[in-house]
């Protein structure tokens, strides 16, 4: 298995290179650093000198691929491709366009993101699986039918509605918790309750319906019929057999998103004013800070690939039938 994991890790390199190349083309070839400088400095009435100064300040005053004026190995390293793109591989994110150290910002901001994402995931799983089991137990009854109808209805409501509605109802009308903000340590708890609840409620529709399908798929299999045939009570069939086997796709589905929890939720964080990576990304997009966007793209790609590898490994752990070669 270690050989398999090693191969997957090696396979990640060309993918990351591809991601890097794509962002490089998008940020530096489609639009030149001159265009970027002009937009940051504002419009057309910008002198060439100001543009040059901006490029020097932010490290963009280099040739794209090959620096003929530099010495030796610097011919390749003193270029935008190396400085701005390839350095990401060493997790050196450099400075944002407003002059802050991106690596430091990320290491600071990932904890609030996790503080929201992990409880939302765990509570959401618990709630969704409970509801799904309930619907599977009462399958083909009115309860099941209306349960699914409610799920579809909840799925059809925009996520923005849950957030705005939750803020308005709990924060403004009932005055139970502050609408937005963040604090350190245990004091942050009162800021976390509402985003977590809203996140869980927003996920119930799609989650419950998906898990219900998984349970129903298992329920129709032969071994379940055997279990019933030998006289096992329905609740034991459900918990002992169906639940255990349906857990395999559920678990692997969770594992794949685990690494991405770091990057946080864009909407929740920006609405609730939580200083996590999600709001960091949104702020960067709104301020048109390309250095941060590039860093987050790379980070997201690394975490995605990590998620895929973890999924494969988790398959072998929970399902003895799967072997990795």
């Amino acid at each position: 298995m270690s050989a398999y994991v090693l191969r997957r890790l090696l396979y990640a390199i060309p993918i990351l290179l591809g991601v890097n190349l794509l962002t490089f083309v998008l940020f530096f070839v489609v639009n030149s650093p001159d265009d970027m400088a002009r937009m940051h400095l504002g419009g057309k009435r910008v002198t060439d000198a100001a543009i040059e100064q901006w490029k020097v300040d932010h490290g963009y005053a280099l040739p794209l691929l090959f620096n003929a004026q530099a010495e030796g190995g610097d011919k390749l390293t003193e270029t935008i491709l190396y400085q701005k793109s390839l350095k990401l591989f060493q997790f050196q994110f450099g400075q944002s366009d407003s002059g802050r150290d991106i690596g430091y910002d990320i290491s600071q901001r990932m904890w609030p993101s996790l503080a929201i994402a992990i409880p939302t995931l765990l509570v959401g799983l618990l709630v969704n699986i409970t509801f799904a089991l309930l619907l599977a137990f009462f399958r083909a009854t009115y309860l099941d039918f209306w349960g699914v109808v409610i799920c579809v209805t909840m799925m059809s409501i925009s996520g923005l509605f849950y957030i705005i509605g939750g803020q308005y109802l709990v924060g403004k009308l009932l005055n139970l918790v502050p609408i937005s903000g963040y604090d350190t340590g245990w004091a942050s708890l009162k800021f976390l309750v509402l985003p977590v609840i809203v996140g869980v409620i927003g996920g119930i529709g799609a989650g419950t319906r998906w898990y219900r399908t998984l349970f129903l798929e298992e329920i129709n299999k032969d071994y379940v019929r055997t279990a019933r045939a030998k006289g096992l009570a329905e609740q034991w069939v459900l918990f002992g057999h169906v639940f255990k086997n349906a857990l395999i796709p559920i678990l692997t589905g969770v594992v794949v998103v685990l690494p991405l929890l770091f990057t946080g939720s864009l909407l929740t964080e920006s609405f609730f004013g939580i200083p996590g990576l999600g709001s960091y990304t949104i702020d960067a997009i709104n301020r048109q800070d390309f250095a941060i966007v590039r860093a987050m793209v790379f980070l997201g790609a690394v975490l995605y690939i990590l998620g895929l590898i973890l999924t494969d490994i988790s398959y072998t752990l929970v399902d003895p039938r799967v072997r990795l070669e």
Partner: peptide, 24 residues
């Protein structure tokens, strides 16, 4: 490779590029 890039960021990057193109 395309899947590895977070969707929102790819859209954001592309739209920002369009912004620059449009303003120029």
């Amino acid at each position: 490779t395309l899947n590895a890039i977070p969707g929102v960021l790819l859209i954001a990057a592309a739209i920002l590029m369009l912004h620059i193109y449009l303003s120029n």
